[in-house]
Amino acid sequence: MTRNPDCEVFQDQLDALQAGALPEEGIEQLRLHAASCGDCAMLLRVHEHLAAPALGDLEAAVPDEMVASVWPRVRAEIATGESVRLRESRGWQGWSWLAPAVAAATLLLFIGSGLMYQEVRELRRRETALVQQVAEQERWLAELDLRTSTDPVARTAGLAGRPTWERALARRRSVSVAELARMLGSLPATTTIFDASDTEALYRNLPSWLAAAVENLATEVPTGDGLQAGELTRLVETLGVDSSRRISTTRLLALAGGSAPGFDLSPGAL
């Protein structure tokens, strides 16, 4: 239905008709509009359908027998409702064994759940310990990877908290013997580069061509407290290695961390 002004007037007239306050000419107008408008014709049909018979006439048409039949039916339904409720309540008496059975089942379930809970707790404790172990091992593996990584950024990040010279080395892929000597020279002579255990591992793994030379020096350089920067400078100078030779910083860092047992110090590797 569109917002046709005639349709709006029709609705108002329908209200008046419904209230019995529409004059004859209004009813005529109403019918004229309905004849040309499908929706309004339908509204008029609804009105006429529901207007007759009037509710008062309808009341009079209700047979006395039908009215009289309602009370016995209501009374029977109310009584039946009560009897159904009573029957339902009595019905539960035949199931008297059910309550203790349910209680026993509940108790068993409760005990079973408790035992299962203990078991689960123990498994969780073991799981937590294993996870911690795995995490610790992963941490060590990551540290090893970082020390030997060829990526300067990763290596620098992995050396947080380490000595300055180690971090300086980590920024470069390789360093020449001359640069290394300069670096060692710039450090205070007493700075420990290799601790006692690192020094021992260093000597033990030296290749034979270098071992003899170092062995002579070892008599002069005490290694009980490790190797300091000054001692290492002298060692490098004494060895007479070509100063332009470049050494991989990865290998040097692994050496410094003592993380590369059996490292190769052969000229080719250096």
């Binding site: 529901l50 309808l58 009341e59 209700v62 009215v67 309602v70 009370w71």
Partner: peptide, 28 residues
């Protein structure tokens, strides 16, 4: 009140059987 209630229910249903059943339901 049963008579007007049946008449009213008839308007809602258009069916006397339903009108009586609904009136009974209302009283319960």
């Amino acid at each position: 009140l049963t008579r007007p209630l049946i008449a009213m229910a008839y308007r809602y249903t258009g069916d006397w059987e339903w009108a009586r059943d609904l009136t009974q339901e209302t009283w319960v």
